[in-house]
Simulated assay, not measured.
Amino acid sequence: MSGSPLNRRRLLGGAAVAVGALAVPALVRAQDSDAIIRNNASSFRMLDWNSYFDNTRKGAILVDITSRALHYWSEDQSIYRLYPTSVPLSDDLTRKGRTEVVQKVVNPSWRPTPSMKERNPEWPDVVEGGAPDNPLGTRALYLSWTYYRIHGTHDTRKIGRKSSNGCVGLYNEHIEELFEMAQVGTQVLLI
């Protein structure tokens, strides 16, 4: 910046890099010294659990569909994680509200829902767990709502996008970390 006039773009770009580097690496990417591209940096931010939950008993998971982010707080609040997610393709596939984790499955098998099979009759009836093309990835947290999961994905292009048929997707390494921390009974809120 030496010899260059200070302008709004440089000031805001520098602030975005500083905030992005601290909060979430890789959301802010510099193309060259004059241009900054920000991907959802303003809404992908740390949140306080007590704005959404009465307590963190058994832990708490908040999924923000708009910012495509999943927040996790441990029961004793010593652990906080913020993960980028994939979210449902459309509002009619999106379910919002309160639920909880009812089951945890390593290498889950995937079965398309009846409505998915109707839209895509060529899809297989089942993809076994551990298969490289399994849409549920390596781990899944089953929610109390039928057919809804928080799960991994082998297709990393989906993260940060509207790309799911209703579930919340994470990078496999992120769901594996969350899987170890979350427990059956962890409260979940989708907003």
Rank of each mutant, 00 (worst) to 15 (best):
G3R: 11
G3D: 13
L6N: 13
N7G: 10
N7F: 06
R9N: 14
L11I: 14
G13R: 07
G14K: 09
A16K: 03
A16R: 02
A18F: 06
G20R: 00
A21D: 13
A23T: 12
V24R: 05
P25M: 08
L27A: 03
V28A: 01
A30C: 07
A30M: 12
Q31F: 13
I36G: 01
I37A: 11
N39I: 10
F44Y: 09
W49T: 04
N50G: 09
S51K: 13
S51D: 14
Y52D: 02
Y52T: 05
D54A: 15
N55K: 09
T56W: 06
R57E: 15
I61T: 02
L62D: 01
S67I: 01
L70Y: 04
L70P: 00
H71Y: 14
D76S: 10
S78F: 01
I79K: 13
R81D: 07
T85G: 03
T85F: 06
V87E: 03
P88F: 04
S90H: 11
D92P: 01
D92M: 06
T99F: 14
E100R: 12
V101Y: 00
V101D: 00
Q103G: 00
V105N: 05
V105W: 00
W110T: 08
R111S: 14
R111G: 06
P112G: 13
S115K: 10
M116D: 01
P121N: 05
P124T: 02
D125W: 11
E128K: 13
E128A: 15
G129W: 09
G137L: 06
G137C: 11
Y142F: 12
S144H: 09
W145I: 08
R149S: 01
I150G: 01
H151E: 01
T153C: 10
T153R: 05
K158G: 12
K162S: 07
G166Y: 05
V168S: 00
N172K: 09
H174C: 03
H174E: 14
I175K: 02
I175Q: 04
E176A: 13
E177F: 05
L178S: 04
E180M: 10
M181S: 07
M181N: 08
Q187R: 13
I191Y: 06
I191S: 08
